[in-house]
Design a protein around this nucleic acid. Structure first.
Lengths: 219, 219
DNA sequence: CATTAAATGTTAACGGTGTCAACATACGCC
DNA sequence: GGCGTATGTTGACACCGTTAACATTTAATG
């Protein structure tokens, strides 16, 4: 039999008529912690995110997050998943009301880069090496696959309309994804800050256009 | 006047005729620590690198690295710089003996992706957000600029030979860099593992070729 | 060569971190 | 009402980055 020491400390005298005084059970801690992590990532960056700081921001004890996330990595995976869903939504939005499928294609790429440059830290978490074992987080893999699917679909549509060259849409999508992901990564990791004092959107348009038209002259 | 306690511990009896027994001063600790960090990064990844583990691997005390690197970030910056120099060398090698400048252009891209996929952790350090303030590490910025310069030069050469479309070489280089950097990042962050069970070099060839020829049909 | 300043390495400590075990409280179901 | 279980808290451990105080070696100066 185990001893039960240190029981029932500081019983509150009254029901505390003012505020109900944050009850012992939070109600929706998982969501609250996710939101706190989101906010922290956007402010201090992915490397600066701390499980303990997240708990403090959510107003709970240091170990409370472990009831909802198996580890810091799992929390980051959840943040990443949230990011892929937001990206997908933003991309879907961008293609709405585009008559020409080619315009939709380009809009998708611009939206990708737009998301990255407006939420750099969130973008970084989505591709952070700590969460690379996405097989361990199936819903994360699914969310990421959905974003890629959008791209494959619009390319196939362009091909049916005779606006894009033939070939496996997935292969073309990989080329397009590489391009916008590369520019996004360079922007997010501040690799271009002094090189090109140009607006990001301008770079994005230029770069995607180059991919559309090609670089090489064929006489 | 300060007390001098704990002085002169364990005087060695003899000059230790066998090995000279690692002297108090290492001789070339900076390089040794850099090498240790390199090895650690390649084994445990950039996030797993620890200043203390680096010191242990180099066989010195935990605080010794601080005589040569101002902080963990500075050590990472040195590792990154080393990476850019290795990348530049590998790229330079790849263009040697290429008669057609276009071939040299493509070889540069393939070498970039080859470096990334054969040294993924090192590649990640080179673009890690922790070292993003590259203004603080001028030699790092210089090493990275040199690699980009290689690309700009070969593009200008292709243009002079009438093999590549006109335009600011730096702008074209940005498109090319984005593409190979994007594919590299996706490979390195294992974003394609199940999507494309194809050899990386095959993907690299396909993707760069798509950039050369363009995606769009112009009737 | 003898002194001594500077460079280089060590030890010990501080606050912070991820994680876990033991414990406390509240919810929901019988 | 009683009780199992989910949820939250406390306290501890090992490890980390960083710094201050101290030790040892090298190099410069006479």
């Amino acid at each position: 039999m185990k001893k039960r020491i240190l029981s029932s400390r500081a019983r509150r005298g009254r029901p505390q008529t003012g505020r109900p005084r944050r009850p012992y059970h939070h109600g929706n801690l998982r969501e609250a912690i996710l939101q706190a992590a989101l906010r922290l990532v956007e402010t201090v960056g992915p490397g600066g995110l701390t499980l303990r700081a997240t708990a403090r921001l959510a107003g709970v004890s240091q170990a409370a997050p472990y009831r909802h996330f198996a580890s810091k990595e799992a929390l980051l995976a959840a943040v990443a998943e949230e990011g892929f869903r937001a990206l997908t939504a933003m991309q879907r939005d961008s293609t709405r009301h585009k008559a020409d499928p080619i315009e939709g294609f380009q809009a998708l790429g611009l939206a990708y880069i737009g998301f990255a440059s407006s939420h750099p830290s969130h973008f970084r978490v989505m591709f952070a090496p700590e969460v690379a074992d996405k097989v361990a987080y199936p819903t994360l893999a699914e969310a990421s696959a959905e974003a890629f699917g959008l791209l494959v679909d619009v390319i196939a549509e362009c091909q049916r309309a005779g606006k894009v060259k033939e070939g496996d849409p997935k292969e073309l999508a990989l080329a397009a994804w590489s391009m916008v992901h590369g520019l996004s990564a360079l922007v997010v990791d501040r690799q271009l800050s002094e090189l090109y004092p140009v607006k990001v959107e301008e770079m994005a348009r230029s770069v995607t256009q180059r991919l559309f038209d090609g670089l090489v002259l064929h006489p």
